[in-house]
Amino acid sequence: MPISSHAFGAIEASVYAPEIFAQGLPAAPRQAHEEPRQLAAEDAAPLLSLEGIGLSFGGVIALAEVDLSVRPGEIRAIIGPNGAGKSSLINVISGVYRADRGHVRLNGARYAQVPTQRLARLGVARTFQNLALFKGLNVLDNVASGIAYRTRSNFAGQILGIGRSRREQADQRGRADQILEFLHLTGVRDRLAGTLPYGLQKRVELARALVAEPRLLLLDEPMAGMTAGEKSEMAAYVRAARDRFATTVVLIEHDVGVVMGLSDRIAVLDYGRKIADGTPDEIRNDQRVIDAYLGVASENEEGAGI
């Protein structure tokens, strides 16, 4: 029984995301993302843009004059050495921090601070660098909580179990189940999130973010602390998610290798400033990036990402 349901999940997913099968095959991912690149039309209006973002903590400059534009449908990576301000940037985009200077443009609306409480309704979902699952809830409920913001029934209705609250619960769990299947998590559906191994917890976080079918998905080091195998698996899931839900992805990552194969465009931060921005090939050949980051990457990776 367990084996068959697992296999079923894989077959289901393959219909939407042929790349899932390509995981582990080094050549395949590059091929696969030729097509999505046309999806991310070069001249489309940006879904998200940062304009002159500056942020400092008690005199320490975290971000300085950072501009960034993200086109609909692309996978946009932000890389940089430790302390380069990558996480601060994600936190500014999701409204956890308020930028000292500059603003965030989302779907054409301009914000000095993105309203965190309304983020989900604006079609933005994110994951966290350190695991931020709800440890006391099982996997299914963790994922379903990603669409809890759509709940309209009140607590009294839920206690009494009247029609609407039942329908909502069934609907939310149904959607969560679909995502679990898509990310091959059905087998751990009823486990408490806190008891899962690290790599699976990361994937459950991705599921919780995806269940709302966001227009913009922010991933804060989704592969940190993973083995090489888990990393390429996660990369395949991210790509599959983009393709299936037409989601725009902004992701932060340490591992330059994974990012190169996964992203459409890459921005490089160093000491809070953007020092390069372009396609993986451009970044690979950019002298400043090589100096600031890639040149020390092998040293850096020892301690980084954990």
Binding site: R118, L119, R126, F134, L137, S145, A212
Partner: peptide
């Protein structure tokens, strides 16, 4: 479940709405 979510991670709870 919302109670538990806020208990376990308030920021994440706020961000998912």
């Amino acid at each position: 479940r919302n109670f538990i979510a806020i208990r376990d991670n308030e920021i994440a709870a706020r961000i998912i709405g």
